[in-house]
Design a protein around this nucleic acid. Structure first.
Lengths: 198, 198
DNA sequence: GTCTATATTCCGATAGAC
DNA sequence: GTCTATCGGAATATAGAC
């Protein structure tokens, strides 16, 4: 994977190679189905080295998820601008993250959360405290409705990620991002600021 | 969530007990994480009996998915009535199926599809040919847009199932069905018959 | 029909030599 | 820092005795 600058014998970026291999494996097959032995094979190192650097499989997963995806950096650009375009900007940013290097971490998290309660908790916490909370805090709506609005947004965004990146159902899987922004943006907008059943 | 029947061992419907246990296990943990040994333990039978009746784990999964959920029976009631209420009726029926005994099969299929390409194919085929196709065939819209409309509907419905039944994020996870029908119905309606980006 | 025994493979984790 | 060897466990699947 990583064939970075020619450091050779007793390679000190073995650790990065392992992290990179872990992200790839976790993204493609989820936490449970990714074995440390397989990750070591992808990285081209001995399986015992993985334990040496990261201690356990759980800690390796956490280290692999600790990616430079900083919602505090992306979201201000989503929140800036007119309120009516909030839905479209949120979908656009969401799709961009999934197509970026950080997308493999997101894919790994979503894929793992389905069959592993521990990682499902990680996903829930990330979505609620990192993604939704900052957006919801800027809305001028009944605060009592915020949790429902937030989890409705989650249904549409997680569903979009599932169909586009996990289940890969066409044509959404290969659609141009702006097509999806135009189609799904209004849905997010309505969940955020539109009328809701009391 | 399915109830275990607690069938008596050593009687002739051991086969049904195994099928029931398999649906429970596959729904709770997905295909890969459900071992034949665990299924046999739930059913209170010997693991070798599972092989005896079903041959392989794959065939057991197929047999467990072959549930009396007949879209040809549910969907006519969805399609009848005014076209403007189609979205809400579809969401209402979708939620009802997931809360019925067939819901465990649906949950098993969704949970397995995430980390197993073979079952992902089953899910794709079921959604497209059994669920969406019959609804889409009754729409009076540009036929060229039907695939996109269908997979947009899939993003919202699969996402709803993910948040409500798999990731279990509140308040959607515990919300009254009619609340979700009122909130999400208009989304489905717009994906089916509303304006779309060309 | 049911179960014992086993073949084969793989897992996470550890101990310790070089 | 790296690797060999191994422990303890669990998996699918098969062969064959009652």
């Amino acid at each position: 994977m990583t064939r970075r600058t020619g450091r050779r014998p007793g390679n000190p970026d073995t650790r990065e190679a392992i992290l990179d291999a872990a992200r790839t494996a976790f993204a493609e097959r989820g936490f449970d189905a990714s074995s440390i032995r397989a990750i070591a094979a992808i990285a081209g190192v001995d399986p015992a080295l993985v334990h040496h650097y990261f201690g356990s499989k759980d800690q390796l997963f956490l280290a692999a998820m600790n990616f430079p995806v900083d919602p505090g950096e992306m979201l201000p650009k989503v929140l800036a601008g007119d309120r009516d375009g909030l839905g479209e900007r949120l979908v656009r940013t969401f799709l961009a993250v999934w197509d970026s290097p950080a997308g493999s971490a997101a894919q790994a998290l979503l894929r793992s959360a389905v069959s592993n309660e521990w990682t499902a908790r990680l996903l829930r916490d990330f979505v609620t405290t990192q993604m939704l909370r900052r957006v919801l805090d800027h809305l001028e709506v009944d605060p009592a409705q915020l949790p429902l609005r937030g989890s409705l947004v989650a249904t549409q965004l997680i569903g979009l990620a599932m169909i586009r990146h996990i289940v890969r159902m066409e044509p959404v899987a290969s659609a141009d991002p702006e097509t999806l922004v135009a189609a799904i943006g209004p849905t997010i907008q309505r969940y955020l600021t539109g009328p809701l059943p009391s």
